[in-house]
Write a protein that binds this DNA or RNA. Sequence first.
DNA 1: GTGTGTGAATGTTTTCACAGCG
DNA 2: CGCTGTGAAAACATTCACACAC
Lengths: 209, 209
Amino acid sequence: MAVHIPDVVILRLPSYLRVLSVLEEENAEIVSSRELGERLRMTPAQIRKDLSYFGKFGKQGKGYNVSQLLKELHQILGLDRDWSVAIIGMGRLGKAILDYGDLTPRGFRIIAAFDRDPGQIGKKVGGLMIKDIAELTAVVKNQGVDIGIVAVPPAQAQEAIDCLVECGIKAILNYAPVSARVPKDVLLEEVDPVLALQTMTYHLKSLGC
Amino acid sequence: MAVHIPDVVILRLPSYLRVLSVLEEENAEIVSSRELGERLRMTPAQIRKDLSYFGKFGKQGKGYNVSQLLKELHQILGLDRDWSVAIIGMGRLGKAILDYGDLTPRGFRIIAAFDRDPGQIGKKVGGLMIKDIAELTAVVKNQGVDIGIVAVPPAQAQEAIDCLVECGIKAILNYAPVSARVPKDVLLEEVDPVLALQTMTYHLKSLGC
DNA sequence: GTGTGTGAATGTTTTCACAGCG
DNA sequence: CGCTGTGAAAACATTCACACAC
């Protein structure tokens, strides 16, 4: 399978990982594509096809070994190591992300938090001291930063993103509700729960709610 | 255009809305599909095609009237009214969602917050008193709830979702990092920033980072 | 000339259906 | 048998290219 792997496939792998973790907790040893499909609301064929892009992980007549597949997917996604994350913007949103603490146990170590407001700089949040955004370059150089999370107000988002790009960061998760521009060798993903709500209202409306 | 509208199109409309708002703030009167495409990193043809599913909003030789298109899209998405939202789960995550305050100005009014922990019930967060989850039915009946937001720990997510479904809620935004099941007449959207991070690591890895 | 709206063409993703293995 | 892995077929989405309107 040396063919090109569709982007949608990569987008689905993390959700496979999630159900497999649940199955592992339930002490399931084996799982079939049918059962995975039921839990993920997708067809068994799609799951088999997706996995087949990366290799042959199943046993005919049985299914997939849960913990083995889990390990394979971790490896494929590059999750067999930790990744260093820096957060830019320590307003309410930035603090919530840092404070919520869902990232660290899932392999994303937040190593620094930045703001440009002198009133914030020097304060401690969740055991981390807020640094001046000007120090970003030095932190990237000395500690290494794989991924930047942008949590500044919308009007400052493009500026913050440009700053990350200049520092050589190649992956950015943008929480600000704006479409930002990055050079094409930089990965940019957007998180905006309101977009999800806005597609739901469309469907609710046509249901007559 | 009485044909079926693809789901991906609906998913893109909110992002059109977002750039149009920016353009309106910049006092732009007119915008072409080319300019929209540049800002959204997509082809002009796709934008024209998407919009054409809903009607003819542009003027040949000129482009689209920003504020008019904004209004049309609002209407199409059902955003020309407010929607009532209830949050289930008032731990750190639920508090962050409620407290962050990005929902209200964008048309989603949080009218109630629930938890099942007696230690939380009765407390006030962001001007809202936390209610016992048992009161959900009554609130839905008396005040009306259009959308439920689930912010409970993963292990309780399915239970919370079942509860919302039983109360007759037809749209759920799930922040818990699990794939939940709902009857097919209920809309369920998931928000998990870690999924986005996990696809980025895949790409970072193949870049050799 | 400029830019929309849209069938037709192209490209991509999903589903089908079955050979082959345990 | 049951279930995977996979080419081939079907469904779906995007892009092209041009007629038409301003």
